[in-house]
Design a protein around this nucleic acid. Structure first.
Lengths: 302, 302
DNA sequence: ATGAAAGCGCTAACAT
DNA sequence: ATGTTAGCGCTTTCAT
């Protein structure tokens, strides 16, 4: 009837649940991430959200605080809410989560990692390779005694991948990163400070410190300054993310820029295409860029 | 039948859309915010999400990038998705958005503002009063020439409220904040830098700068250092938020701590209680705290 | 082209 | 207590 048509003009809004029930599609994408307190992740989520909206999808957000059990619970939640697809972070998930997704046939994609040999679809970059590249830069500058202030590598394969990458690059030149020069902890400025303080109290003193991200690097930089340690003359510091302020800090932070926005966008497209039954690329690599700034320099003469 | 019961044990997950259709409740809360690239907002969203989860609700996230038209579109989207309640930010929304919510009888709450006289429910603090308090602190330190590096006050009533608060406190002492010493822009470090540079090039030079948030204050601090301007001896700088690193920056940033986590939690409770038909407090004030650190000090002798 | 009807998977009200 | 049934508002299929 044309009565309906008139009604639709005037503030009619479809009933999504009825539509979802009838169509077996909710037009919602779920995203399960550890936290949102990080600008890089925020960017990824924003891109996901924007792209989803453009293609008629809503985003359901769930946080799991690096707790794999909670992640599983959140996954069940989102499935109950009817999400048609799911964006996850990293490769390390509860086995039951993978089972659940496969059994239900819900498209999902692991992000912020790139591994073409993984059985699960992924979009991101090779954390190990990125960390290795950063380390090689420092090796080329003549550094031989390295330390790392890593992220939560017990619970994040991205964080542990970066540690492995540093180790790999060092091993290739016959060097190593001993456990006592590898600090692990949350991505907080204060953690970076404490980490640096601990490292500089040890023997031998590192001349190059790779940090798990820019927040940790910022903390390390602040503490170095507080200790009267000149960066980069006495100590080189590098991070990951290339946050807003990384270029602004004196002396400018050397860091790996990670295209978070692009990952979020690609994840949205991957999921929505996959829902539509299209074949999607299993593994997509995005480009990281090594941004050289003043916080890294030649190793001091010993 | 007891067959069902057995089935339920083994990985049965309710069909949310069917449930929503039948119960006329989706058990989803929507949140429309400008961006997520800010730690304070991230904290609010995280708290909302956590509390909602605890009470059996999911969170649908939508961003509007300070565009009121887009906010309205997102609102329609979320209504279509069936949200039972909506968390908004600030008081300034598209009139049609308010109409829509009222017409549909969907509970909503404006956050990050506190105004008991507003017709709309709100949870937060009085931005004007908070800014005034910060300004009074600077007045008490003897400052007479003020400047402000404000947030996007064309599109954010929180940002413009802070400007008004500074003006009010100054007016109470017979001082003013002229337009040429009021910079307005996005919450970016670089904006803070540029703002400070512009302000220090003017006449008379301000001795106290109130920034719309800590990110701007950080930029201002960096630029002051770059200009060889000592903080706080030559210039006092203050912000809003008390982010993670505000205490870590030398000389320590004086700032208003805003209880974002608490706001998110209260918003979740407000909405869920309201959905349950309980009477909820119309206006809830959370406490801000003035955190005094090294970036503010006595006005220089002139 | 337009209208009628079945059914999506649940909940709630009902009947046994 | 247990089982049966109507109906939520859409989409899709089928009949006119």
């Amino acid at each position: 009837m044309r009565v309906e048509h008139a009604v639709r003009e005037l503030g009619y809004i479809r009933h999504g649940a009825a539509r979802a029930l009838s169509m077996r599609q909710s037009h919602a994408i779920g995203a399960i991430i550890p936290t949102v307190d990080n600008a890089t992740r925020a960017s990824k989520v924003a891109a996901l959200q924007k792209r989803c909206r453009e293609r008629g999808y809503n985003v359901l957000l769930a946080l799991f605080e690096y707790d794999l059990e909670l992640e599983l619970v959140q996954c069940r939640n989102l499935i109950e809410a009817g999400v048609d697809g799911l964006m996850l972070e990293g490769e390390l998930h509860h086995p039951a989560l993978y089972q659940l997704m496969e059994k239900r046939g819900i498209p999902f994609v692991n992000t912020a990692i790139y591994d073409p040999r993984s059985p699960h679809p992924n979009i991101g970059f090779d954390n190990q390779a990125a960390a290795a590249r950063l380390t090689e830069h420092l090796l080329d500058l003549g550094h031989r005694v390295f330390a790392m202030i890593a992220g939560p590598n017990q619970v994040s394969d991205r964080a542990s991948g970066r540690v492995k990458g540093v180790r790999r690059a060092l091993a290739a030149r016959g060097l190593d990163l001993p456990a006592e020069r590898t600090i692990e902890g949350p991505y907080r400025v204060q953690q970076g400070r404490q980490g640096l303080r601990a490292l500089m109290g040890g023997e031998p003193r590192p001349t190059a410190i790779v940090c798990g991200n820019d927040v940790l690097a910022f903390g390390a930089l602040l503490e170095a300054q507080a200790l009267g340690c000149r960066v980069p003359q006495d100590l080189s510091i590098a991070g990951f993310d290339d946050l807003d302020w990384a270029s602004q800090l004196p002396p400018g932070l050397t860091t790996m820029a990670l295209p978070a926005w692009e990952i979020g966008q690609l994840a949205a497209d991957h999921l929505i295409d996959s829902i539509a039954g299209q074949t999607v690329t299993h593994s997509t690599e995005v480009e990281v860029r090594l941004i050289l700034r003043g916080s890294t320099g030649p190793a001091p003469e010993s």
